[in-house]
């Protein structure tokens, strides 16, 4: 419990910026990655507005850079892609490289 609290209190901002830049680059977005906030939504009609095709592209880049495959049946993707921070936390917990 205390670990969860400390990780929530101290998000990995370096990784967060890396993930933001990765999304912008993978999808050729116009956004400035530094202006994407940690709590910004990624999927759906808020925030970046990514769709199901974008998520597959991002998942592919994640698998290459961080060495793990996303799975829809094991985790709630709406939660994972809920915000830049939740995606970053998920990558931090599952990365193998």
């Amino acid at each position: 419990m205390s670990q969860e609290q400390s990780s929530a209190a101290a998000p990995d901002t370096a990784l967060e910026r890396e993930v933001a830049a990765m999304i912008v680059s993978a999808l050729n977005l116009d956004n400035n990655p530094d202006e994407i906030k940690a709590e910004d939504a990624l999927y759906g009609d808020e925030g970046l507005g990514l769709d199901s095709i974008d998520i597959l592209e991002v998942a592919l880049v994640i698998s290459k850079r961080f060495g793990f495959q996303l799975k829809a049946d094991s985790e709630d993707n709406f939660r994972i892609f809920g915000s830049l921070r939740s995606l970053t936390d998920y990558i931090a917990a599952h990365r193998t490289k």
């Binding site: 597959l56 998942a59 698998s63 495959q69 996303l70 799975k71 829809a72």
Partner: peptide
């Protein structure tokens, strides 16, 4: 299935 790993499974 959605992600490649889901297709394989």
């Amino acid at each position: 299935p959605y992600f490649p790993a889901d297709v394989a499974a």
